[in-house]
Design a protein around this nucleic acid. Structure first.
Length: 418
RNA sequence: GCGGACGUAGCUCAAAGGUUAGAGCACUGGACUGUGGCUCCAGGCGCUGCGGGUUCGAGUCCCGUCGUCCGCCCCA
């Protein structure tokens, strides 16, 4: 038989036991703060109808155009691995009529997302997001509270050097007006723009504004900013949002260039960035999407959400030396080979008593057993020996301080559980 | 999708085109026949990412491919 070696696919990786405790620690932190804010966990499927993402994220966005894992199932349906979770949560919210519950309805999720991109630092094809969505509240208070919640999470994890960037991209009304204004402005410049922007000019002119090509930036230096053309309502919303952030003691900067790569946003958008991630500076991103629920056939429902990039959060979380993996509490060894089975049985007894235990299954010297116990970082070693058996007792050894003694099983359990 | 760097033992890295590809750490066993960590000794480390080519001879040079990293684009 020909031997084949398999590896993870590009951009995918195994999270091994040696780092999983770090993930578990961070997931617990995230869950805890979300639940304090009354967010309820929701777990939508990872595979959805591709249409769901086309209609929410937008067909002209990079995510949909070139980054989606999209394929046909055996019935010929076009399905996609989710590139983000908001669309799924909105779908579930409507599908299960969760809007019949009183607002605010708050949901959170933690799970894998998929984007077919070129991997690099902080960027993977399968990555994880922890995110929240709030339905039913139009007040900017919600956005401000969400940012405050994230700020608390970062403080709790002792993560600093973050920049809170905010912007408003208006509602359907002011955006329509602004779009016309922008088109007029771009009219006689369009030939000077890069090829991407020429296409954007046709299909999604707002995205011309955040082109990174130097020549485009130059010719757009005096371009109108949507921030200056918000309608009265959007303007008031943004003003109140800023006032609340100040009240909540959140330092922020206004970045009029944030438009977000997803079409469903309205009014508030925000991004939290760090200098320590190289080119992938965003750790958290989100915003308001007041039209999405309605456009998916639900009742008109304002909504806000954000997502945290878990890999990026872990990357900037420096203080993890104190997080220790879980070790077995006891390691059961035997002094002579005939007692091997007794040792295994003793391990079974410990496990039945909810004490985590590891044991030696092969025939080997006591010395090597102790060495293994050390390697496993076991706290206690219990040795089954012939002399002790006669007195129906066992030898115990504390691997942290080297102390040892002899005791009955009852005494040992008491010692361990102390 | 575009550009650059790099792929050698489980890990970190050596080996100016020339014997049988090495070292440290780690692993296994022993010195210590019922006791880990320190020390010493011994042992196995390998399709040099993969596939072609050049050459008397390739880990080394060339081409392709896959992968990793770093930029660009975009994003979490």
């Amino acid at each position: 038989m020909k031997k084949v070696r398999f590896n993870t696919l590009r951009g995918m990786r195994d999270i091994l036991p040696q780092e999983i405790h770090l993930w578990q620690y961070i997931e617990e932190k995230v869950r805890k703060i979300f639940e304090i804010y009354n967010f309820k966990e929701i777990r939508p499927p990872i595979l959805e109808a591709a249409e769901l993402f086309l209609r929410s994220i937008g067909e002209d966005t990079d995510i949909v155009e070139k980054e989606m894992y999209i394929f046909h199932d055996k019935k010929g349906r076009t399905v996609a691995l989710r590139p983000e979770a908001t669309a799924s949560v909105v779908r579930a919210y409507i599908e299960h009529r969760l809007f019949n519950n009183p607002p605010p309805q708050r949901f959170y999720y933690i799970g894998p997302m998929f984007r077919y991109e070129r991997p690099q630092k902080g960027r993977f094809r399968q990555f994880h997001q922890a995110g929240v969505e709030v339905f039913g509240i139009a007040e900017p208070l919600i956005e401000a509270e969400l940012l405050y919640m994230v700020k608390r999470l970062f403080e709790d994890m002792n993560i600093r050097d973050l920049t809170y960037e905010i912007n408003s991209i208006g509602c359907l009304n002011c955006r329509a007006e602004f779009k016309q204004l922008l088109l007029d402005y771009l009219e006689n410049k369009v030939l000077k723009l890069c090829s991407d922007c020429q296409r954007r000019f046709q299909r999604n002119p707002l995205r011309v504004l955040d082109c990174k090509v130097e020549s485009c930036k130059n010719s757009l230096s005096d371009a109108p900013l949507i921030l200056d053309f918000l309608c009265d309502e959007c303007e008031a919303h943004f003003e109140e949002f800023k006032t609340l952030l100040k009240e909540f003691d959140i330092d922020f900067i206004i970045n009029p260039k944030i438009v977000r790569g997803l079409d469903y946003y309205t009014k508030t958008v925000f991004e939290i960035t760090t200098p320590s991630l190289g080119a992938q500076s965003a750790v958290v991103a989100g915003g308001r999407y007041d039209n999405l629920v309605e456009s998916f056939g639900g009742p008109k429902t304002p909504a806000v959400g954000f997502a945290i990039g878990m890999e990026r959060l872990i990357e900037i979380f420096k203080d993890f030396s104190f997080i220790k993996p879980k070790y077995p509490t006891v390691y059961v060894a035997y002094a002579t080979e005939e007692l091997r089975k007794d040792a295994i049985n003793l391990a079974r007894f410990f496990r039945d008593s909810e004490i985590s235990a590891e044991a030696v299954y092969e025939n080997t010297s006591l010395k090597s057993q102790l060495r293994k116990a050390d390697r496993f970082n076991a706290y206690w070693v219990i040795i089954v020996g012939p002399e002790e058996m006669k007195r129906s007792s066992y030898r115990w050894k504390n691997m942290r301080n080297g102390l040892e003694g002899e005791a009955t099983l009852e005494e040992i359990v008491k010692l361990i559980k102390k």
